[in-house]
Design a protein around this nucleic acid. Structure first.
Lengths: 144, 144
DNA sequence: TATTGTTATACTCTATAACTATA
DNA sequence: TATAGTTATAGAGTATAACAATA
């Protein structure tokens, strides 16, 4: 099970974060690919499921993604019928992204698959350690 | 200090790993940039400092980087006089990468700066939590 | 004038294929 | 035949600049 990485690299935060992130993406991509979406698209579905309809601009700010990048992600979800771009009644420039029933369903299926992927990724840790890790990571990112 | 990321995203391993990794790279790049090297180059210097001379092939395997990617990284270090490409006495195809005194010095300076960057990155955690986080991350990656 | 969504474009990072010199 | 290093190239991923519609 040993990875073969140099011991000194394993205490390097950027190195470990990068490698683990890569492995995580591979697993989640595999799981979500079976549903016809990628990791970023599932993140979009999840934010809309949690917070309701919002504009592409708002969505990009939430996820820390440029609005030009959002376009392509949303294009795919739109074509797949998982969300709709509705004109905002208060601002005709903006699209109010709204989940379809299919989008809500796919989001939930994806949620389970992502959870499986994460559990497998962190398989060498027990349940308590996994919770601790996620807690520390999110606090490091968010400042509580 | 709150990041503004959606709460549901903060429990998503791939999301948190990715964002934190990005932030880490930005900080470390800033610190190491003052020494004229980037994050990957400092990783190369560190492996050579820890394990002694090795070929580009071996280095790539250690770091999980393709040998074609190694070329550019080593080119920069070579031009900066931080390492030398010596012909292997046993295999004239291979380059034995060997640190120069300047390379060893830069590696050590970089080590301190990287440590500073990591401490700042994880500033919302206390010392015990930082150690726990790094331990859990490295064990998740390496399988102990 | 400023902003939303969009497109075209460029830049970074990384890997694949093909070459050379050795083995 | 196979391997180490190299080069050229192509593919992701993401950002910047400019445009149309609207505010």
């Amino acid at each position: 099970m040993a990875s073969g990485y140099p011991p000194s690299m394993l205490s390097r935060v950027s190195f470990v974060l990068g490698k683990l992130h890569l492995r995580c993406l591979e697993r989640e991509s595999g799981e979500l690919g079976a549903l016809g979406i990628d990791v970023k698209q599932h993140a979009v579905l999840s934010v809309l499921a949690d917070e309701g309809p919002m504009t592409q601009q708002e969505l990009g700010q939430r996820l820390g993604i440029d609005r030009t990048t959002i376009v392509t992600v949303v294009d795919g979800l739109d074509r797949a019928g998982l969300l709709e771009r509705r004109r905002s009644p208060t601002d005709r420039r903006a699209h109010l992204l709204t989940l379809t029933p299919a989008g809500r369903h796919t989001q939930q299926q994806g949620q389970h698959r992502v959870a499986d992927a994460e559990r497998a990724l962190l398989g060498t840790l027990d349940e308590t350690e996994r919770r601790t890790l996620i807690d520390l990571l999110s606090r490091a990112l968010d400042g509580r």
